[in-house]
Design a binder for these strands. Structure first.
Length: 298
DNA sequence: GTCCAGGAGCCAT
DNA sequence: ATGGCTCATGGA
């Protein structure tokens, strides 16, 4: 790695990750991960149950960790700082709408999340606004997670609960976190992982269709949630989740506002957007939701 | 009050 | 196959 260690202060360690074209806020706060909060000039959250603070500097990403030391390589892996974004963007079709989205949000990336946390997050997401998903996510951490060593001056952070702890908590306890009908699905998924009948990390080794099939066998997981898990945590860059925003965008800009059914949009997206379709989807999603550019330096 | 949110499952045509 | 309804809950 080409990262530079910086002088530590009071048990906090810092390091500079040299990463160009990294739009940190757009990436952490664009509806792919729900556990990052801005405090003390940094985006704070957990990676592998360790507190991490992130901010941009002119040379790259400034990363600080609290002391039980998390491996720097795990942080780089989560953030995908070694991912060759310009090369991926070059695989995009020369389609004016997509290219416009890329121009507005260049630097937006896809994280590599923990598959369990990703699955649980998107089980919570069905017909909920992103702010609400973040609230329920945080409540799950506070109630069923474990305290994480947090630097002074920052809000106490709790880890995302394990499948075992959510399975043991029971459906009614989950429901009291205001997740409504999604509680049954989350509890069932937690049980499947806790009893070992499904191994999410193993999905990373499977071909796309087979991994998708296994995910969709879970109650409450359809094509959209499965593709979110595949794209954001299972190394499937072609996965193209179509939610209400993406469906609206595709119909408006590629089908002249005709009422194309979802499966047909799915087929179109697969053949149109190429090997990094999921990344393209993330640009389209962000562009559809907030068309005004983020004027942050790259 | 009303509409809608990073959906999925079920049932009636 | 396709369309409509329901599932909870809260923000806009």
């Amino acid at each position: 790695m080409t990262d530079l260690p910086l002088p530590s202060q009071t048990g906090i360690r810092k390091r500079l990750f040299r990463a160009t074209h990294y739009a940190l806020e757009a990436t952490l706060n664009s509806g792919q991960a729900f556990g990052w909060n801005y405090s003390q000039d940094a985006w704070c959250g957990a990676i592998d149950n360790h507190w991490v603070g992130l901010r941009r500097s002119s040379a790259g990403l400034l990363v600080q960790v609290a002391h039980p030391h998390v491996a720097w390589a795990r942080i780089a892996d989560y953030l995908q700082t070694d991912f060759d974004l310009p090369a991926a963007l070059r695989t995009f079709p020369a389609d004016p709408f997509l290219q416009s989205a890329v121009r507005h949000y260049r630097g937006l990336r896809v994280l590599r999340q923990d598959p369990w946390i990703c699955l649980a997050s998107f089980l919570l997401s069905a017909t909920k606004q992103i702010v609400q998903i973040r609230q329920v996510y945080q409540e799950l951490c506070n109630r069923f997670g474990l305290p994480v060593a947090t630097p002074p001056g920052h809000p106490q952070l709790f880890s995302f609960p394990t499948p075992q702890s959510l399975a043991a908590a029971g459906e009614a306890e989950l429901r009291s976190c205001r997740m409504g009908f999604r509680a049954r699905y989350l509890h069932a998924a937690a049980q499947r992982l806790a009893d070992g009948s499904l191994d999410l990390l193993h999905l990373r080794r499977l071909p796309l269709q087979e991994a998708r099939r296994q995910l969709m066998a879970l109650p409450g997981v359809g094509r959209k949630i499965a593709d979110c898990v595949l794209l954001f945590s299972c190394d499937q860059p072609r996965a193209f989740p179509i939610d209400v925003w993406i469906a609206r965008t595709l119909r408006a800009h590629y089908f002249n506002d005709r009422s194309i059914p979802l499966p047909q949009l799915q087929v179109f997206a697969e053949q149109h957007f190429g090997p990094h379709a999921g990344l393209a989807q993330q640009y389209l999603f962000h562009y559809a939701r907030k068309p005004e550019p983020l004027m942050q330096p790259l």
